[in-house]
Nucleic acid binder design. Sequence first.
DNA 1: GGTAGTAGCCTAGCCCTCTTAGGCAAGCGA
DNA 2: TCGCTTGCCTAAGAGGGCTAGGCTACTACC
Lengths: 189, 189
Amino acid sequence: MARAGVTVERLTLAAAELADEVGVENVTVAALARQFGVKDASLYFHLKNAHELRVRIALLALAELADRVAAALAGRAGKDALVAFANAYRDYAREHPGRYAAMQIDLDPETAAASAGVRHAEMTRAILRGYRLSEPDQTDAVRMMHSTFHGFVSLEKTGGFRHTPRPTDDSWSRALDALDAVLTNWPSR
Amino acid sequence: MARAGVTVERLTLAAAELADEVGVENVTVAALARQFGVKDASLYFHLKNAHELRVRIALLALAELADRVAAALAGRAGKDALVAFANAYRDYAREHPGRYAAMQIDLDPETAAASAGVRHAEMTRAILRGYRLSEPDQTDAVRMMHSTFHGFVSLEKTGGFRHTPRPTDDSWSRALDALDAVLTNWPSR
DNA sequence: GGTAGTAGCCTAGCCCTCTTAGGCAAGCGA
DNA sequence: TCGCTTGCCTAAGAGGGCTAGGCTACTACC
């Protein structure tokens, strides 16, 4: 009886690909076992439970996204950096809907702290260096940026913009213009 | 044998409450049947399938939210209206996390068109009357507003802001300030 | 007030998923 | 070569989704 050669890494990658194809909610231990030509129960040798699988997809996605964003950001500053970041974010979400959805699960604090989400946050702050914001404005601006990106991408995906004919690409670049404008001239109270 | 008196309306309401308590993903036909003191199979007399249940929760939530927003908007204009809208939105999402999550499912076009999401969109546009934007800027602005609201609320809920001590309430009101600023001075290209 | 008929519920039963417990065998290290 | 660990297996139970087919209580109509 030949061994299937299952490892956590291969499982995670296959799960991530499955998520992009059929949605995270359909990423099941059983389906994964079938892909590896193995019985479901065997996967529990590598995995604690089904939840761990989802967490691993999320961590993988977080790391991949951070890499992409880092690459996009290299050598850019100001609005250029903002747009590059935003596009890298949106493109990733569209190319990997399942991975992106998996990213939204609630990680427990230690896991989150050890994840690439931290790198993500650092890079977002780096963008703001071009806009000369000091705390707490910087934190507020980071949160607003992230909200806009995530909100737009998320609504676009679930069809929240479908009722208006306007191409979402256009709205997206105008949103980035608006974001740039408000960051340039952040309202101090 | 007394009849349990199950109706689609009662089912939907109970399901929505269950969603707020245990999360949409745990709203199961079986759990609902238990609450009504009825067997699971019996609910299929009232419901086509489990998916219909989720759709109904979403439609209920959409309608409730639209009512709240309408009430909050009454007699207000400009930034006042913006803030009232935004707070009604965020408050609803926090009071009803399960209902809010249910709202994010992908409704098929006809269902979406018949939903209260339409009212929602109309009201968002109404706010923008105070900011004198013409098409297509108006659509872009509506999309950005909605993105910011949804993104913020969603990230706040999944703990995306937890790594920074700054109170989210503060960031929220500054985001609204920023949104007001950018709507007042929408960047035309 | 009897009698259809239908609305509302039930049982039985199937399939799928998650998960635990315990067993066997392949291949490595000593 | 002999174990021992690693990687897979079977068996089995608990839930959940859903269908088919049956029984009963209420309704409406004659």
